[in-house]
Amino acid sequence: MNPSVLFGSGAMLVIVDLAVTIAISRSAIYEPSQKRIQYLLIRLVPVVGAVVAWCVLRTQSEPFEAGKEISTGNPHIAENYPDRNEGNSSHDAGDHGGP
């Protein structure tokens, strides 16, 4: 294999690992012990470790949208949360759909 290809691949690997390591160090979703485990994963299994750590970081750090509805798949769950059902008079009256 061409030495320049090997050097380029190695340099790219170092850059990706470094970028993911910096992203993890700046993240607030991990405790310090979890960050150390992520760093070890990235160093010991470079490509897979970086991809796994990046994917977990991206899925856990998606910004919460205040106006976005959270769907539980159960239409009756809304009865238990009056702040999501401000105009629901049946909740205010204590009627929970029972006999």
Score class of each variant (00 low, 15 high):
residue 91 H to M: 05
residue 31 E to I: 01
residue 57 L to T: 07
residue 48 V to K: 05
residue 31 E to A: 11
residue 23 A to T: 02
residue 6 L to I: 13
residue 59 T to K: 08
residue 84 R to Q: 07
residue 77 I to Q: 14
residue 66 A to Q: 14
residue 80 N to D: 13
residue 86 E to V: 15
residue 96 H to A: 12
residue 81 Y to I: 14
residue 13 L to K: 06
residue 32 P to C: 10
residue 39 Y to W: 04
residue 98 G to Y: 05
residue 92 D to A: 15
residue 63 P to G: 01
residue 96 H to R: 15
residue 16 V to F: 14
residue 87 G to P: 00
residue 46 P to V: 09
residue 7 F to A: 12
residue 55 C to M: 12
residue 10 G to T: 04
residue 87 G to E: 15
residue 51 V to M: 05
residue 45 V to T: 08
residue 40 L to Q: 13
residue 84 R to T: 13
residue 68 K to N: 15
residue 53 A to I: 00
residue 66 A to H: 08
residue 22 I to R: 06
residue 58 R to T: 04
residue 86 E to M: 07
residue 34 Q to S: 02
residue 7 F to T: 11
residue 94 G to C: 10
residue 72 T to A: 07
residue 56 V to P: 00
residue 60 Q to A: 12
residue 92 D to G: 09
residue 48 V to R: 05
residue 68 K to L: 14
residue 17 D to V: 00
residue 43 R to W: 04
residue 73 G to T: 06
residue 49 G to D: 00
residue 88 N to C: 13
residue 27 S to A: 11
residue 55 C to V: 15
residue 49 G to Y: 00
residue 9 S to T: 06
residue 8 G to K: 05
residue 66 A to M: 14
residue 54 W to I: 03
residue 28 A to S: 08
residue 73 G to Y: 06
residue 45 V to L: 08
residue 26 R to V: 04
residue 23 A to R: 02
residue 67 G to W: 07
residue 36 R to I: 09
residue 99 P to V: 08
residue 33 S to P: 00
residue 88 N to R: 10
residue 10 G to Q: 08
residue 35 K to M: 04
residue 20 V to M: 06
residue 53 A to T: 03
residue 70 I to S: 11
residue 93 A to N: 14
residue 4 S to P: 03
residue 83 D to M: 07
residue 42 I to P: 00
residue 85 N to E: 15
residue 36 R to N: 06
residue 86 E to K: 13
residue 10 G to M: 10
residue 89 S to A: 11
residue 4 S to Q: 11
residue 77 I to N: 12
residue 44 L to K: 11
residue 52 V to H: 01
residue 48 V to W: 01
residue 21 T to A: 03
residue 15 I to G: 02
residue 83 D to W: 07
residue 22 I to A: 13
residue 29 I to S: 02
residue 1 M to W: 07
residue 80 N to M: 10
residue 49 G to K: 03
residue 57 L to F: 06
residue 11 A to M: 08
residue 56 V to A: 02
residue 82 P to D: 08
residue 19 A to W: 02
residue 44 L to G: 07
residue 36 R to Q: 09
residue 15 I to Y: 04
residue 69 E to N: 11
residue 32 P to A: 12
residue 54 W to G: 00
residue 82 P to L: 13
residue 18 L to G: 09
residue 93 A to I: 10
residue 94 G to H: 10
residue 15 I to H: 04
residue 78 A to H: 06
residue 18 L to K: 03
residue 93 A to S: 14
residue 82 P to N: 11
residue 44 L to C: 05
residue 83 D to I: 05
residue 81 Y to F: 06
residue 47 V to S: 03
residue 37 I to A: 11
residue 32 P to V: 11
residue 49 G to E: 02
residue 15 I to Q: 03
residue 58 R to Q: 13
